[in-house]
Each structure stands twice: as structure tokens, then as C-alpha cells.
């Protein structure tokens, strides 16, 4: 088996290496990947959406459908992990031996986590809100914000996190993010535009169509942020506790 695997992977590698000879030179501005569509985005996205960050403009506006289903994929992954692992009946508390390390847990770790977590959440909001002008956006900010909750649940335990943030709340918000995204798109339909064409929001927001596209992008990024944050917490909580939702790691 190992010999076959070695042969397959080496054969694949050789084929790909031969194929690399046909690739354009590395860093060539005239390579096929950098000419057709991406040139259009670079030259026009600022004029059409007033967002200086091309990546945000393409992600949230030109390829808005893609990103919407992307968010739906994360949501589905969260639900799938929940369905695979979650046990409906809890084991009785008496059966579970409290782990020895739980006693006298490190006070430095706890205090540090208490200090770091709010900073992380603030930074996550900055990354979200400043995604139009600097690297960042809903996915990146959401992961940072989710990580702050995961940090708390590692420093304390999962029970502490889940006593403040009920499982029901987590799943509610992860669905809400997708709903915000699709809702912003659907309101465009009601206002007479195409689905996810934010320029029709200009009628409500009282700004120009170009500005409306920029604001619409911020709106859907907020939806992505909420979904990613809560799905990250849900994935961690399920995987770390094996679906028990008890004390976690």
C-alpha cells in the first residue's frame, strides 16, 4: 500500500513539474491570470464601489453570491458537527470523574485571559469595520472574535463559557448572520434592483449609488462576522468536549 501511494504521489509530482514549464514567468504582470478580469476589478472597483481594498470589493460585491454561499457553507459545517457529535442525553454528573488538573488552576493564565479577551474582541471589531481600507473583513474579524471566546473557555472551562453563552444563543446567532446577508440581498430585490446589488439601497440610505454599494458591503460583512464568530465557538465546543458540552479541554 505504501509503495503504491509513493508511486502515485511521485507520478503526480513529476506530471505537475513537467507542466510548470508552461506556466508564465513568476511575477509577470502580463500573465493570463493578471490580465482579463482582474485588470477590470483594479481599474474600476474604486470608481464603482468607492472601496479602496480590491479584495473586499470583489469578495463582497462582484462575487457576492459566492461569499453568501460561503457563509452558508460555514453554517452547514457547524450544524453538521453538531449533528454528528452532540448527544441528546447527558451522562449523569456522578459518572464523570473531575479531572485532577482542574483543581488549583493557574491564576496567571486566568488573569491573562481576562485581560486579553476584551482586547481581542475590540481588535476583531476594528478588523471588521476597517476591512474597506486595510486587510480585513468579516471572515478575519469573525475568526479573531471567535478565538477570544475559545481562549476564555481554555483558560477557565467550557462550562463557564456556556453558562454565559447558551448553546441555543450560539446557534441562533450563527443563523442570524446568514439571514442578515441574505436579507440585505433580498431588500435589494424589494427596492427594484437585482439580488445583492447594493446600489438600490441608495433609496433608503439617502446616499449616492456608489456609496450605497460600500455601505451594503459593510452590512454583509457584519453578517459574515456574526456567523463566523459563533460557528467557531460552536465547532470548538463540540470538538473539545466530544459533544458532551461539559467541561471541555
Amino acid at each position: 500500500m505504501k509503495i503504491i501511494a509513493l508511486l502515485v504521489s511521485v507520478a503526480l509530482g513529476v506530471i505537475l513539474l513537467v507542466a510548470t514549464n508552461d506556466l508564465p514567468e513568476w511575477g509577470d504582470p502580463q500573465s493570463p491570470a493578471s490580465t482579463h478580469l482582474s485588470r477590470y476589478y483594479i481599474e474600476n472597483s474604486m470608481e464603482q464601489t468607492s472601496v479602496p481594498n480590491f479584495v473586499t470589493a470583489v469578495l463582497a460585491d462582484y462575487r457576492g453570491y459566492d461569499t453568501m454561499f460561503e457563509t452558508a457553507v460555514i453554517f452547514c459545517a457547524g450544524i453538521t458537527v453538531l449533528t454528528i457529535l452532540r448527544r441528546s442525553h447527558r451522562r449523569k454528573k456522578k459518572d464523570v470523574q473531575p479531572r485532577p488538573c482542574r483543581e488549583g488552576q493557574d491564576i496567571i493564565l486566568k488573569s491573562a485571559a481576562r485581560l486579553i479577551a476584551p482586547m481581542m474582541q475590540l481588535f476583531a471589531l476594528y478588523v471588521l469595520a476597517h476591512g474597506h481600507h486595510s486587510p480585513g473583513g468579516g471572515f478575519q474579524g469573525g475568526v479573531i472574535s471567535g478565538a477570544s471566546f475559545i481562549l476564555l473557555s481554555i483558560a477557565y472551562d467550557l462550562e463557564m463559557l456556556l453558562s454565559r453563552l447558551k448553546e441555543r444563543t450560539i446557534m441562533f446567532f450563527s443563523g442570524l448572520g446568514v439571514l442578515i446577508y441574505a436579507g440585505i440581498g433580498a431588500i435589494c430585490l424589494l427596492l427594484g434592483g437585482n439580488f445583492l446589488n447594493y446600489s438600490s439601497w441608495s433609496k433608503i440610505l439617502q446616499v449616492s449609488e456608489v456609496e450605497a454599494r460600500s455601505h451594503g458591503m459593510l452590512g454583509i460583512e457584519i453578517g459574515v462576522f456574526i456567523t463566523v464568530t459563533f460557528i467557531m465557538i460552536s465547532l470548538y465546543a463540540d470538538l473539545a468536549s466530544g459533544g458532551e458540552m461539559d467541561e471541555g479541554l
Binding site: A33, S34, S38, A57, I74, T80
Partner: peptide, 30 residues
Amino acid sequence: AASYANPLPHVLMLTAIVVGVATLGVALAI
């Protein structure tokens, strides 16, 4: 256009990273 890196692969890979996290989570659960 030549003075800015191509944004399209960045967008596609942002997508791929997120799908990667999702599939990794599901794989670990399985």
C-alpha cells in the same frame, strides 16, 4: 493595473481557507 497585485486569487483563496476550516472541523468530528 500593473502596480497592484492581482486581487482575484486572494479572494478565491480567502474562500478556500474558510472552506478548509469547515471541512477540517467536519473531518475532526467524524
